[in-house]
Write a protein that binds this DNA or RNA. Structure first.
Lengths: 269, 269
DNA sequence: CGACTAGTTGAGGAATTTCAAGCGGTGTGG
DNA sequence: CCACACCGCTTGAAATTCCTCAACTAGTCG
């Protein structure tokens, strides 16, 4: 069975306030990119009070599965998750990865049940956001409603990035650029990546064979673009990778450079 | 101009619905699937009064282009549109099609500008929905907020359907099943399709060469699954096509079986 | 009528997959 | 602590899907 990860023996569901620090949203470094972004004063306090219930996930533990009723959105606080579907032939298709500051589960809003599985790729922490409560808060907090829509829309964005018909090299380069951008906290995009996902996950996500991912990484390495040792990737020439992926404009570029509120005019190559 | 339907050679202002006919959303047959779904009484009247401005598009006319500031969402009332991006090498990538009852432009919420172009594939009518006004209405109309999120989430759904790694046959079969399902008004899924999109559009959307689309359609025809004459497709064995596409469960299935349901507002238990 | 475009069909070729084998960490049991 | 097995990853060779190139057909429009 593909995709079976080492399962921890215990569910390990702890109820801790806020994020890794164990405090409320007010003190969370991810807040500018998370749902309560833009909230202030009483709105923020109200959100922090009402909303987040933290849940820890061990690597390999599922956050939700196909068929689960949709009740909550999940803001990734620490770690990394993947969502995937298993088709009728048993093949696994990775649909998306979720990094800290991102929102998982939004694709279940419409069907009102989860159509995909989500699993932690490493030990992770998510904030469980009751969708009902979220809705109640959103109608009295326009900024929250706005941010919720923004974050759901962002998923469209990330899906469109890899939806197109590109070569394996282009997609893999774009993947690395994208991961680097999405792993960035508040500073610059990191050049050292410790990927949480396996080659197989990457391959499935990019619609490639795992061997192809290996081969292209090796090629990138030969060409001095990066240094790859298992899941540790060193981006030696990020600009070069970016160049390879640049054909995927405008999506690749925007996915990387996106910062809230500041819109740069589009300029085609 | 290409893309004109064989049936009505004239500008074809046949039976316009609701807004497009100069009447409000109250009388629009698409309402159960559109944004004001679930609204009643004063809420509905308020929405109908404040919101929709109809816009007609000739085949080949653009609704928006890359770089346009994001100001409105667009509910397709009649016709069909495609969204597409042009990469740095000048290749066009079709990202999505929009059928009556569907919402275009949601992928621009996050970046606050359009990252793709949208063009009418045939003479079409869309309802222009000012996003600002929409947001103002949504904070006082929980059902509207809910439906807005649902419709944006649905886009995630349709993208996930073809995101996976499937064979050309599977994707094309899934495409036909999907179009049939999405063209369905309130009745059954039609078995006669008058596609608004060219083979090239289909191919780009499915990440195939146009020749491959032709060949596979011919193969389907030889196998008695359908009858294809240019853009007129007769689904002779919908179940057979469904079978071929069924490997794409759960997405294919749900995209098809999804029926508009009464929206449960947040507050009701 | 004749040019033009969309679509079809065939042959050859290329990118990627599949099959197969081997490498190298990591964990486990002796 | 070491031997062994396992798993993720890599690499090579053969196979295959799908693409590219090319020619052709049939509608469409001036």
């Amino acid at each position: 069975m593909p995709g079976v990860q080492p399962s921890p023996p215990t569910p390990a569901v702890t109820s801790l306030r806020g994020v890794a620090a164990g405090r409320g949203c007010e003190f969370c470094g991810l807040r500018p990119r998370c749902l309560p972004a833009g909230l202030e004063g009483e709105h923020l306090a109200g959100f922090a009070r009402a909303m987040p219930r933290a849940r820890r996930l061990r690597a390999g533990e599922h956050l939700f599965r196909v068929g689960d009723p949709f009740e909550s959105l999940f803001a990734v606080s620490r770690g990394c998750l993947k969502s995937y579907a298993v088709d009728a032939e048993g093949r696994e298709h990775v649909l998306n990865f979720y990094f800290p500051g991102e929102l998982a589960g939004a694709d279940a809003i419409y069907p009102e049940q989860h159509m995909a599985n989500a699993i932690a790729l490493e030990d992770s922490v998510v904030c469980v956001l009751s969708y009902r409560t979220l809705g109640q808060l959103a109608v009295v907090t326009p900024e929250l409603q706005q941010q919720l829509l923004r974050l759901v829309s962002r998923d469209l964005f990330s899906m469109a990035t890899i939806a197109g018909d590109f070569t394996a090299e282009e997609r893999l380069a774009a993947f690395l650029v994208m991961v680097s951008a999405r792993l960035r906290g508040s500073g610059d995009a990191p050049t050292r990546l410790d990927l949480a996902m396996s080659r197989q996950d990457i391959a499935s996500y990019l619609r490639l064979a795992t061997e192809t991912v290996s081969r292209i990484l090796a090629r990138f390495q030969r060409n001095g673009l990066l240094k790859a040792d298992r899941r540790r990737i060193l981006l030696i020439d990020p600009a070069g990778l970016y160049e390879i992926a640049a054909c995927m404009n405008p999506y690749a570029r925007c996915a990387e450079d996106r910062r809230p509120r500041h819109v740069r005019p589009f300029r085609s190559a």
